[in-house]
């Protein structure tokens, strides 16, 4: 059973279609990237999954069926718009948040102590939330998301306002949660974090799913016939089947003529006795794919 199954959901606000027949599924032990430019419909899709909004069409299955009040206790949510009670002491605020997920006060206190230690917030537990830095509030918000040990975690931009040390800590934490078997949906604009963490992804633009699959599948789909090569000596001026050579920082990129395969170019280089140190099919980065898909989408619209 997939803990999250989204089937052709659609949501209109007046004449604007925010989400247009999007479908995807998230497995246990998986971090799933929900990507898209600003205003693409990611937040609306999340709110439909959480049953905050009702879909006009389509359906969502959470933990084996429609969302219920009881199931909300098994979902952790870090919204894009961070929100905590600014005038409340940190510990009281987080215990209240945990209580809303049906966690008892005593259990909340026990878990909170562990989390505050881990996030280096123990010294600030009695401080009012508004007295904490933005980064600290971000960490507090993450605690509120995870303290009740949810089976499904939905996090929107989890790394914003975090320094590199805390970013790494959150990454480790998400990895731990994945290993515990949680189904995690992560929204972010930081493509290198998606490449590093996500197992699969969906890219939404103008409310529609543009890409869906594993990271490898998506990159292969956008792969060109280009090759990245690193040699100890200079490359020959003329290589059969190569249209041009582009200098990159560490490598040279060989742009192939149509119909030419990487294997034939490799064979030619070997035949010419070129000492090859590195040979790689040039797969596009996720960022490049993202820009390409979104730009094409804009051009079409």
């Amino acid at each position: 059973m997939q803990p999250i199954f989204v089937d052709k959901i659609q949501k209109n606000f007046g004449k604007t279609c925010a989400v247009d027949e999007i479908s995807f599924a998230v497995n246990n032990e998986e971090i799933f990237g929900l990507l898209g430019p600003n205003g693409a419909g990611k937040t609306t899709a999340i709110r439909i999954i959480l049953d905050i909004f009702k879909a006009d069409k389509g359906s969502v299955s959470i933990l084996g069926g429609p969302m219920t009040e009881e199931k909300k206790d098994h979902v952790g949510y870090l919204p894009e718009e961070r929100g905590l009670y600014q005038d409340m002491p940190l510990d009281r605020c987080l215990i209240y948040m945990a209580g809303l997920k049906s966690l008892s006060v005593s259990e909340s206190k026990t878990r909170l102590t562990k989390y505050l230690d881990r996030f280096e917030l123990a010294a600030y537990r009695s401080k009012k939330v508004k007295e904490l830095s933005k980064g600290m509030q971000q960490k507090a918000q993450l605690i509120a998301t995870l303290i009740h040990e949810p089976e499904v975690v939905i996090i929107d931009e989890p790394f914003s306002a975090l320094d590199p040390v805390n970013t790494q800590m959150v990454k480790d934490l998400l990895d731990e949660e994945r290993k515990k078997g949680r189904a995690i949906i992560m929204c972010t604009h930081q493509m290198h974090q998606v490449e590093e963490l996500c197992d699969r992804l969906v890219l939404i633009d103008h409310g529609r799913a543009m890409l869906y699959g594993t990271l490898e599948e998506v990159r292969n789909r956008y792969a060109t016939q280009d090759i990245l090569v690193n040699t100890s000596a200079r490359l020959p001026l003329k290589i059969t089947g190569v249209e041009r050579v582009v200098d990159m920082n560490a490598h040279k990129k060989l742009v192939l003529k149509p119909g030419i395969t990487a294997q034939s170019v490799l064979a030619d280089l070997v035949r010419m006795k070129v000492a090859i140190e590195h040979f790689e099919i040039a797969l596009p980065s996720l960022e490049e794919i993202f820009i390409q898909v979104v730009t094409e989408g804009v051009a079409k619209s």
Binding site: L50, Y85, Q86
Partner: peptide
């Protein structure tokens, strides 16, 4: 204003 409404609604219903 504190933007906690969305968090509240992910844990309970508007009527609650």
């Amino acid at each position: 204003e504190n933007r906690v409404m969305e968090l509240l609604m992910s844990s309970s219903s508007p009527m609650q």
